Each structure stands twice: as C-alpha cells, then as structure tokens.
Amino acid sequence: MAIYRRLDPERLPHHVAIIMDGNGRWAGKRSLKRFLGHQQGAESVQYVVETASRIGLPWLTLYAFSLENNLRRPKSEVNFLMRLLKMYLNNNVRRMNDNNVRIQYIGRTDDLPDEVRERMQWAAEATQRNTGTVLTLALNYGARSELMDAFRGLCAEVQSGQLKLNDVTEQDIQRHLYTAHMPDPDLLIRTSGEMRISNYLLWQIAYTEIYVTSRLWPDFRGIHMLEAIEDYQRRERRYGGLADGTESDDVASLPANQLVG
C-alpha cells in the first residue's frame, strides 16, 4: 500500500482516538433505516482495528456510545445498539486474538444492561493476554461525567484525610480518570465533517492533534486512518511553554515534568 510506505514508522502516533460520526446520515442518504447505518459502521470498526494492529499502533480508542445520546435516542435504537455491540463482540473476538488486539472499555459501563456487560467482560477476558493494539471502546461515556466521577473520588480522599485540598495536583485528577492507565491521545480523528469535540476526552486532548474528514463513518476504512496519520506526521506538534519559559516545537524527547500548560 503506497500510503503505508510513505509513513515514518518512527513517528507513528502512540494513541489514536476517533469520534465515529455519520451512521445516521449515511443511512439517510441511501433512504435506509438508521439501524443499517449503525450496522455498516460496526464493519468499519473492524477494518480500522485490523489496520491499527498491522501498523503496530499501541492504543486505539473509539467513541462508540455516548452518555448523552443514550438519553436522546429512541429506546428502540438504543436497544438495537446494545444488540449490535453484543454481536460485534461475539463475531470479532477471534479476529482480535488473530490480530493480537486486547479490548477494554471506559465510561459508565455499570449502567449498561447485564447481558451486555457479561459479553463485554467475556471479550476482555478472552483477549487479555494479547500484547498488541489496545482497543478501548468508550461506552455510555461523557467527558464531563468522567470529570465529575474523578472529582468525587478526589473529594472522598480529601474528606478521609488521605489528601490535603491544597496538595491536589493535575496528576491526582489524572489518576481518577477512566483513562488513568492510558497515555493521552496524540491524534484525534473525527468523521462526518463536524467541527466539534462532542464531550469526548476533554481532559486528555489538551495537546492532541485534530484531524477532521467529511467522510461518514460507515465509509471510513483503514486507509483513511493512514491518511490521517500521514497528515499528523507532516505537522509540528506544540505543547505550550516549557518550565524555563521558552517555546518548543518538538518536545517528544523532553521529560513530562518539564512541560507546563
């Protein structure tokens, strides 16, 4: 594949996050029911996951089911999405194992139906020994809710005396996030052309490069992720000022404790 040969393997992003948008519009353009758009979108997930595995991408996080949409969608659509999630896991765990992919989840997953959580746990356990790409599905997720949960955890530590209020640091907030065990995304991809973040990983994307494509998610394939990565590699990443007050265009080699907002 020509685009893959153009990529610098030494400068691949460590973590790519994707807002998968456009399933409903894809179906509407074809005079199909929205359910079919979601179904086609699930196929795109597997194409992208397998491409991530082939190029050795360590972390891939997909915004699969937002907390807000859970409240706004018709119940029939939510029920279909839950069935689709179970079907995706049932049908793709073997392929994940073949591609050395490990699956995990972030979000308020305890609020999902019991039978869905059972399948999620089964898939996580079935892939837990894999050492390649970590696929994270954001399910029943909202970034503001994540921050609320993190602050509640911090408040509990302060109230119990484990932590003093004036000693709270960014690292203390970070360790209470759903993503505490994960690196922040280097690249955020949004499909469907919408120019907004949609309450996704608000804390984590402070210095993330953003790539927007007008392509709807059901038409998105691995090659399109490679195009986003190629665009990412042409950029000079900027992380704000350094501790000594100077500016840096490339701070990938600097210790994290030298970076400030």
Rank of each mutant, 00 (worst) to 15 (best):
L32V: 06
R108E: 04
S160I: 07
P58V: 01
M182G: 02
L163K: 13
Q174A: 09
V158R: 05
C155K: 13
L201M: 15
G222L: 02
N257F: 15
G261L: 11
A64R: 01
D149C: 14
A243Y: 05
R34Y: 01
L177Q: 03
L89P: 02
V168T: 04
N90A: 10
V101A: 07
G161R: 11
D8N: 15
R72S: 11
M182I: 07
E247N: 10
R95S: 13
G161L: 12
I103R: 14
G142Y: 00
G22A: 12
R108Q: 07
I19V: 15
V134G: 09
H224N: 14
H38P: 00
Y47F: 09
M182V: 04
R234T: 15
Q40D: 11
T136V: 08
V212S: 15
Y207E: 13
R238W: 10
R221L: 05
I189K: 00
Q128G: 06
V168Y: 03
G240E: 08
L71F: 08
T61L: 02
I173V: 15
P183Q: 09
E43W: 04
E118F: 10
I197R: 06
M120Q: 07
R102W: 04
Y207F: 04
W122N: 11
R94Q: 15
V116Y: 08
G241L: 14
P9L: 03
I55K: 10
P185T: 05
L216A: 13
N70E: 11
T61R: 01
E68L: 06
E115W: 10
D184N: 15
N100D: 09
L202G: 02
D250Q: 10
Y63H: 10
K164A: 13
E209L: 03
L202M: 15
A252S: 12
R54N: 09
D110S: 13
Q159F: 08
P255D: 04
L163M: 12
E43R: 11
P185D: 03
A252R: 12
E43G: 15
D98E: 14
G222T: 00
N140A: 12
G245T: 12
A123M: 05
Q39N: 06
N166Y: 10
E50Q: 12
D21Q: 09
F80E: 06
K29P: 11
G245H: 13
R94G: 07
D8I: 13
S248P: 00
N79T: 13
